[in-house]
């Protein structure tokens, strides 16, 4: 990356940090904590403001991975594979945040680390989908073949998300979540939290993408596989 672009990207992270500082301050100074059955006990409530934006950003990252997959299948340029891989990694990371905050919440609210509620099952399956993407990558040697398999997987996984969501709703729900009613000030804080989380997601995807582009140039070039030369 040229020095100027690097400086600009450095500045981006300063903005992200500032946004986090602002929203954290907002969370502890401005936002009231109200007792609410769905939001859970008081201090833990604060985690809700991280939980929901990271869930939404998981979808955002999944979408980027999907676009990368479609791009590769269409254009056959490895740059799309790099984008898809970077986004899938961030999707897995964001989903981990969702899972961990969800588990802490479950522990405080219901006294158990894990409850098979449809939502928690959904986040677990989503997490599995994208962690699998990450583990299959190193096991395929040829760049081309890896990009192809991963692109197909990224496309299938993204389209699978609504099916996963539908299917977990068929499972019996031990606790029935009611829709959350939020105080206006709480709503503002929640909206504000989307800013740093989204900036973080985009920044992480970009950083990993840049790193992958740089590494790609170092990788040894295997001859491209064609129908006649495919290994037998």
């Amino acid at each position: 990356m040229p020095a100027k672009a690097r400086r600009r990207f450095g500045l981006y992270w300063v903005v992200v940090a500032a946004a986090f500082a602002a929203t954290i301050t907002m969370l502890f100074v401005y936002t009231p904590t109200a007792f609410d059955e769905t939001l859970g006990p008081l201090p833990i409530q604060k985690m809700f403001y991280v939980h929901l934006p990271s869930a939404i950003n998981t979808f955002l990252a999944c979408l980027v991975a999907f676009i990368g997959g479609i791009g590769y299948l269409w254009h056959r340029r490895l740059v799309w594979d790099d984008l898809s891989a970077a986004a899938a990694k961030v999707a897995a990371l964001m989903c981990t945040v969702v899972l961990v905050t969800g588990m802490i919440w479950a522990k405080k609210a219901w006294g158990m680390w894990w409850v098979w509620t449809p939502r928690m099952t959904f986040s677990l399956l989503l997490w599995l989908l994208y962690v699998v993407y990450l583990v299959i990558r190193p096991s395929i040697e040829s760049q081309q073949r890896r990009a192809m398999v991963c692109a197909v997987y990224a496309v299938a996984a993204f389209l699978d998300v609504p099916l996963v969501y539908l299917s977990v709703r068929l499972m019996p729900a031990p606790y029935h979540p009611v829709s959350v009613s939020l105080d206006p000030s709480m709503r503002w804080t929640l909206a504000a939290w989307f800013v740093p989380m989204t900036l973080l997601t985009i920044g992480l995807i970009k950083a990993d993408f840049i790193r992958k582009r740089a590494n790609r140039k170092d990788e040894s070039e295997l001859p491209p596989e064609t129908p006649w030369t495919a290994p037998s």
């Binding site: 399956l125 599995l128 989908l129 699998v132 583990v135 299959i136 398999v149 997987y153 299938a156 996984a157 699978d160 099916l163 996963v164 539908l166 299917s167 977990v168 068929l170 499972m171």
Partner: peptide, 14 residues
């Protein structure tokens, strides 16, 4: 197997 199973989870659950 590791590619196909996660994608097919909705079928298995349903």
């Amino acid at each position: 197997a590791i590619l196909v199973f996660p994608i097919c989870l909705p079928l298995v659950i349903t």
